[in-house]
Design a protein around this nucleic acid. Structure first.
Length: 571
RNA sequence: GCCGACAUAGCUCAGUCGGUAGAGCAACGGUUUCGUAAACCGUAGGUCGCCGGUUCAAGUCCGGCUGUCGGCUCCA
């Protein structure tokens, strides 16, 4: 119906496709002039008037010839292309739906009439490529949604607005966690508070890896291009790599001038590391964990807050193992991921990417690899779906995805089998038979990148971090200056216990200091006045509103023990 | 990279028709010493993202660039 209104208001506009989405719909149009925000308002108004006319939707089945003739007459070249497609895939007829004198095809079903639609709200307009291919003409996509009545729409809009309040970019500024500067697009400035949060996560992962048979290593950040040629990155990934060019070189070709590249991934350097010694089958699986900085030269248009950056760190690991160990290892990994996500309360979905059309290795190998992954995921009981053909060319994978506050799904953790790398790098181990064998590699990350993971966590907790993650775990505030001495002692003693404590020594009133601490979403505010000085204790106030917030007087040692317990990572 | 929008003080934002930039908070100085979400008075703070153009005059209009945002493509 929106398309019919667009064609009436903007003659000459061609229609293409207009499917429904999770929370609304979009329709792609081909028109030279861009739709302005004002145009959207006009379209929305006209569409809602059309609803009131309550025109019936009429269904009709037509043959290929009839359909082509119809859309040819209407001058709808994009529609004709889809019609051809539908019939070439074996359809016998095409279902048309019309209302008034406007007609489109659709599998249906449709509502009986336009009056049933309720209320339409157009949200925004964006560019999109015909058939999702950037070599094709660019279309204009109008996004919108519809509800049975205005009240539901308003409620939904309000909810969207609430979600935007927990946007990590907004909270990152408000809670003083990170910043960006035009001088380094896509690279994060972590503030002290943000760095504390980063390290809390990073150290928890270190501990987890240490307890699960990993060795943490660090490898160079920059490598001679010969390494990338060997790994295949030079051929497949070079446009995403930051290259170091030889200033002396007179070569025009950037390929020839390049000498080194910043690493976009850790894998090749882990293979080099593995090869520095000879390995026995008894050592396998060997697990290397690295949290080094990576650089990927992402296209300007895709950068977005912390979720898509050019410089980032992963909780990356590569497991080198025998094929017979895959099923067991994948199960352990899936359980590890589940443990971490569950501890944080993150709802996630696993996506099982199976063999793509373009791939290496035998079908028998893929059968084994996919079966191993499938068995592992089924045993752990996590929510998963199959993404046929979404595996990497070198092996199948499991991706773990979580939604952000506005509903966009981001891939975080991943488990990928790799049969290609061991060949390229000629990795080997000495087997029981005293002969050289080829191992398999598993690439895995649990957080994915710290940057993206932190973005998701900020939105998930709306900035209200649990004590173990909170940059400041408690802030000390005094009622009057005469309480400063005890406050400083409390500060020092808690800090000595390894806790992240700060003190507000300003001359503000208590209420103002409480408010400041609350706005920073600090888990505990420790009030110190006459009572606390005398009793050698503190009066903690838990973050959040309400009468229960004030926990009342507590001895310092008792509170310190409680806070320390809460400060321990849950994994 | 492509399409569109946006860019004003540290932050959030106002700035009408083109006539020489403003608020609140934060900061700084002073006063205040107070018991659970904002004490009071004062001061300072700006190359209106950058470059160019139109104009007697540009935050305002036009063009280019950079960055950000919403999508698309991409995402080993």
């Amino acid at each position: 119906m929106v398309a019919s209104v667009v064609q009436r208001l903007f003659p000459g506009t061609q229609v293409t496709i207009g499917p429904s989405t999770e929370d609304g719909f979009y329709y792609d149009f081909f028109r030279k002039e861009p739709f302005t925000p004002e145009d959207l308002e006009r379209i929305e108004k006209a569409a809602n008037e059309e609803i009131k006319r309550d025109l019936p939707f009429v269904r009709k089945e037509v043959s290929r010839e009839e359909a082509l003739q119809l859309f040819d007459k209407l001058g709808e070249t994009f529609k004709k292309e889809i019609v051809e497609d539908i019939f070439s895939k074996g359809a016998k007829t095409l279902t048309l739906y019309s209302h008034g004198d406007w007609v489109d095809f659709c599998l249906g079903p449709h509502a009986p009439s336009t009056g049933r639609i309720g209320v339409i709200k157009l949200l925004n307009v964006a560019g999109a490529y015909w058939r999702g291919d950037h070599r094709n003409p660019q279309l204009q996509r109008i996004y919108g949604t519809a509800f049975f009545d205005k009240k539901d729409l308003d409620a939904w809009l309000k909810q969207q607005e609430e979600a935007r309040k927990r946007d990590h970019r907004k909270l990152g500024k408000e809670l003083d966690l990170f910043a960006f500067h035009p001088a380094a697009p896509g690279a994060v400035f972590w503030t002290h508070r943000g760095t504390l949060l980063f390290h809390a996560l990073s150290n928890a992962m270190r501990g987890l890896c240490l307890r699960n048979g990993y060795q943490e290593i660090k490898t160079p950040l920059m490598f001679n291009k010969m390494l990338w040629e060997r790994s295949g990155h030079w051929g497949k990934y070079r446009e995403n790599m930051f290259l170091v060019l030889d200033p002396e070189s007179k070569e025009k070709d950037i390929d020839e001038r390049a000498t080194f590249s910043l690493k976009p991934m850790n894998c090749p350097s882990h293979y080099l590391f593995y090869q520095m010694k000879k390995h026995s089958y008894r050592e396998l699986p060997i697990r290397y964990h690295t949290q080094d900085v990576l650089h990927r030269n992402e296209a300007t248009g895709v950068l977005s807050g912390l979720t898509r950056v050019r410089q980032f760190q992963q909780d990356d690991a590569h497991v080198i193992l025998m094929e017979s160990q895959i099923a067991d290892e994948v199960k352990r990994l899936t359980e590890l991921i589940k443990k971490v996500y569950d501890a944080l309360g993150l709802g996630f979905r696993a996506k099982f990417g199976t063999r793509p059309p373009q791939r290496i290795g035998t079908d028998e190998m893929w059968d084994r690899a996919e079966a191993g992954l499938r068995a592992a995921i089924e045993q752990t009981g996590v929510d998963w779906m199959e993404n046929p053909g979404d595996g990497a060319f070198y092996g199948p994978k499991l991706d773990f995805a979580v939604k952000d506050s506005i509903g966009r799904e981001w891939q975080l953790g991943t488990i990928q089998l790799d049969y290609n790398a061991p060949e390229r790098f000629e990795l080997g181990y000495v087997g029981e038979d005293n002969k050289e064998h080829r191992p398999v590699v598993i690439h895995r990350a649990i957080y994915g990148s710290f940057e993206r993971f932190i973005a998701i966590l900020i939105e998930h907790f709306a900035g209200n971090f649990p004590v173990w993650l909170a940059p400041t775990q408690a802030r000390i505030i005094t009622v009057a200056d005469r309480h400063m001495e005890w406050a400083r002692e409390v500060h020092a003693r808690l800090q000595e216990g390894g806790l992240r404590i700060e003190a507000d020594e300003s001359s503000e009133k208590l209420g103002a200091k409480i408010r400041d601490a609350q706005l920073m979403k600090i888990p505990y505010t420790l009030v110190i006045g006459d009572k606390e000085v005398e009793g050698r204790g503190v009066s903690p106030r838990k973050h959040g509103e309400g009468k229960e917030a004030d926990l009342g007087f507590q001895q310092l040692d008792a509170f310190a023990a409680k806070l320390s317990a809460e400060a321990r990572p849950p994994y």
